[in-house]
Amino acid sequence: MSSKLQDFLEKHVYPTQIWQSIFRHGKPINDRNRSLAVLSNVFLHLHPIRLPRYATKYTYTWGMGGMSFLLFLVETVTGILLMFYYHPTATQAYIDIKSLEFDVPFGMLLRNMHRWGAHLMVLTVWFHMFRVFMTGSYKKPREFNWAIGVLLLTITLFMSFTGYLLPWDQLAMWAITVGTNMARAVPFLGHEGPFSNLLGLRIDNDIRFALLGGTTVGGPTLLRFYVLHCIAVPFVMSFLLAVHFWRIRKDGGISGPQSARLANLNKVTQVKAALGKKEESTVAQPPKTE
């Protein structure tokens, strides 16, 4: 940057009320200002101000959680844009998807990003779980957050599943038909499941009927899945995401051998075990059940 521009900014931009009202801290040229930048930014303050060095290494975190969240955002943005061009009706849906390819500006790009992003998100969420398991990060005190994570994984799959129907082509319709056929067999609640006769269930009043809005995948199913995909499930998902992120911080930030201190365990043995004091680690005792 030329020094002239620098001077101009210093004199006429940074001191203005507008600038000062937006940025509550100085330029991030020293640690103090950088800390403030993280603290005073609603998005960045999901992070702690400082963290142990290993937590910034890709080989430890794999970045899968962050990528999942980024993909969630990508899906949200592309999804909102796609909603402008889509009618969830059996007569119009397919033509709308065709139009995305043939006349909507960036229509095909949007649809591709949305679909491939969704596939990718399933993968990143799964590998996030894999990493968390392999580092034992679900252990005390993060048990609850792991459970939330499992729910989020389930919801991710359900999001992808509901979205699968919306193009309304053969692939969509029959994948959903196969998928929802399982609901026939729910014990007690599906008309083909065990003990369904106890509740007097038929094909037109069981749980699958409630999910599809009919006895087969049809127009009402499309509308139902659309509402689930665009409103209901994202709402639940955002809620759980907030809890998930909040609990990461509240449970002591990123997992690691040092954070065992926060766990209400036998501190000395735990830390020593982590730090490699072999002879003592063998005598580590699990907590007595309360």
Binding site: R50, L51, P52, P257
Partner: peptide, 27 residues
Amino acid sequence: PVWEAEPHNQEKVHTWPHLLNIEFIAA
């Protein structure tokens, strides 16, 4: 000590830039 518990790796670093830059690259 395990790799994560090595003194070098246990050292506290600032989120800005150490974490944010790798997040940014990943994104």
